[in-house]
Structure formats: structure tokens, C-alpha cells
Design a protein around this nucleic acid. Structure first.
Length: 293
DNA sequence: CACTTGACCTGTCCGC
DNA sequence: TGCGGACAGGTCAAGT
């Protein structure tokens, strides 16, 4: 599920919902995979801790605590972080835009209860996601954090640097390179397809065959698509929900993702689905012709 | 080192 | 209906 826009949406939601709250109880229902820290470290660094801030780096959420520990959370494909206030009747007539009913449910892995009686639920159907506690100062030295590429929406990332970073992957497809988190952070399968359509690049095209103008256009499109997706609250294909349990609406604005059989909005050619870099891939075969020389 | 493939899990959908 | 297989938004380990 969650790519950069979805994690950013959860981050913004949690920032207003849990900052300042104090953790009273944590219930781990599926350890150690979902939450590998020992019970003693959870007791020592999580209980009675106040939430200071919520950050995001790549697709990772960082919840900073007053104990100088940070709760790192990766939602992977089907993870959810859903907040419920004390008086919210669980599951009682939840609105149509909500995907989750009564909590905890079958997929709930961890429940964090705050002193005011509110709860944060970590749900994950496929169990790929995880959360773990780390001293805040050690986050930067985590193996993933050390190798992950720059934030694509950062003002610091110029189109020149963007293009530079792809040069070490000249012999692979542009789609595989976009999905490689060490090149650029945060792009996953949905926004890779959407950006490549915008830049009129076939996903199988070898990076080394792309001209400077192609990579400049891709840089613009990645930023445009990610910003639009954040504005729409992310994409809900199946499982994704924000911190309030509600769906995102980017899918309604998608140009190719999950639109096989429908006409391209630029040229009316029928959108097709193929497999590139081992992933389901959607293109307009007219707008996106593969470059082989 | 660059690159590809399979594994991790559960649920759902599609064809027989 | 039931069953088997393919597939799903991410990452990592192991393979060539």
C-alpha cells in the first residue's frame, strides 16, 4: 500500500491527533514480527512517554517520544495506523468513506492506549509491516536510512541531481530504477506508473537510453503526481486508510493505474497492463513507446 | 557491483 | 459452492 503520499497523509493526521498525548498501555498482539522490541524496552521507553512529534522519511513514519526514543513504523503493503478517540463508539455507524469498523479487529497487531483513553491501532493484514523502538539519535544510522535516496519533494533536490542519481542504474528499466528506494525515496508502483505516463516514457526503457529532457520531464511528473496524491489524501486501492480510518481519493484521478481497458485521457488509445520489473504495470501503448536505441 | 528473482503473509478474485 | 492458482500498494536476501 502506502507510498510517500499515503505515509505523508497519515503523518499529517497523527500530527494533529496524538502529539502531546501520553502513552499509558501498549498491547502487542502479534510479536515479535510486528514489534520485535523486548517487553522491558517497551515498558522503559514507551510507557509514560509523551508524543513529541511525528515525522516521515521515505515511506517510514517516525513518532518521536519524550524518552528520546522514536517509534519507527513501516506499513509495507497493507498496514494501517488508525486513531480512535475515547468517546468514539467503535464501529458504530462509521461513515461511508471509512474502511475500518470496530477496533481492534482481526488484523490488529499493536494497540497503544493514551492516558486520555484514546487509542492508536496498528493493523496489518499481510503482516509485512513492523514498528520498532530506536533511540532518536540512532535513526539516522539505521541501515535503511543510511542508503535511502533523497526526498523527491524536497526543495534541495534539483532536476540535475535527480538525473544524476539515475546514472548508476543505466542498464536497468526506468521503472525498476524509480522503485529503487536508494535512487529516489518514496515512489512505489502506483506513482511510478502515473509519473511515467505523465512523462510519456515506456517503463521498460533502459535508463541509459533516456535523454536529459526525458529525465527532466520525469522529475517534474514525479513531483506533480506525488503532490496531487497528497492533496487527494493518497490512494485507496484496497486497504489504505488515513489516521482517521478514511480512504484517499487519488485513484479517482489516476491516468493509468488500474485503468486497463479504459481510454487514455490524452489520445483515447486503450490502456493496457503488462509486467515490468516483476510488477503489474499500466501504460498507454500510444503515448509510451519503448525506446530501444 | 549491477541486476533479477523469490520469499515474506493473508485475502480476494477468476476460471474450471 | 468449491478449489487451485494468480495476484496485490514494499523490501530484503540470495541468486546469476
Amino acid at each position: 500500500m502506502p507510498e510517500l503520499p499515503e505515509v505523508e497523509t497519515v503523518k499529517r493526521g497523527l500530527s494533529t491527533l496524538i502529539v502531546g498525548k501520553v502513552i499509558k498501555i501498549t498491547t502487542v498482539r502479534q510479536s515479535p514480527k510486528s514489534f520485535p522490541n523486548s517487553e522491558s524496552s517497551v515498558n522503559e521507553f514507551l510507557l509514560n512517554a509523551e508524543v513529541r512529534s511525528v515525522r516521515r522519511r521515505a515511506k517510514v513514519l517516525l513518532i518521536d517520544l519524550s524518552t528520546d526514543y522514536t517509534l519507527m513504523v513501516h506499513l509495507k503493503m497493507t498496514g494501517q495506523l488508525v486513531f480512535r478517540g475515547e468517546k468514539q463508539a467503535f464501529g458504530a455507524g462509521h461513515p461511508n468513506d471509512s474502511l475500518v469498523g470496530e477496533l481492534p479487529d482481526k488484523s490488529t497487531r499493536v494497540v497503544i492506549t493514551f492516558t486520555d483513553g484514546s487509542h492508536l491501532f496498528f493493523n496489518d493484514q499481510r503482516k509485512f509491516g513492523w514498528m520498532r523502538l530506536l533511540p532518536t539519535e540512532k535513526i539516522a544510522y539505521d541501515t535503511f536510512m543510511l542508503k535511502v535516496g533523497p526526498e523527491p519533494l524536497s526543495d534541495d533536490l534539483t532536476s540535475v541531481e535527480f538525473a544524476e542519481r539515475f546514472k548508476r542504474r543505466v542498464n536497468t528499466s526506468i521503472k525498476a530504477a524509480l522503485l529503487d528506494q536508494t535512487v529516489i525515496a518514496g515512489v512505489g508502483n502506483i506513482y511510478a506508473d502515473e509519473s511515467l505516463w505523465g512523462a510519456k516514457i515506456h517503463p521498460s526503457t533502459k535508463v541509459g537510453l533516456l535523454q536529459k529532457k526525458h529525465l527532466e520531464k520525469l522529475y517534474e511528473e514525479v513531483r506533480y503526481v506525488l503532490n496531487l496524491a497528497i492533496e487527494k489524501g493518497g490512494s485507496t486501492d484496497k486497504n489504505y486508510v488515513n489516521a482517521e480510518g478514511k480512504k484517499g481519493s487519488y485513484i479517482d484521478f489516476a491516468r493509468v493505474f488500474r485503468r486497463e481497458g479504459l481510454p487514455c485521457s490524452r489520445c483515447q488509445t486503450t490502456i493496457i497492463k503488462l509486467k515490468v520489473a516483476g510488477r503489474g504495470t499500466h501504460i498507454c501503448p500510444y503515448c509510451q513507446k519503448e525506446q530501444t536505441t
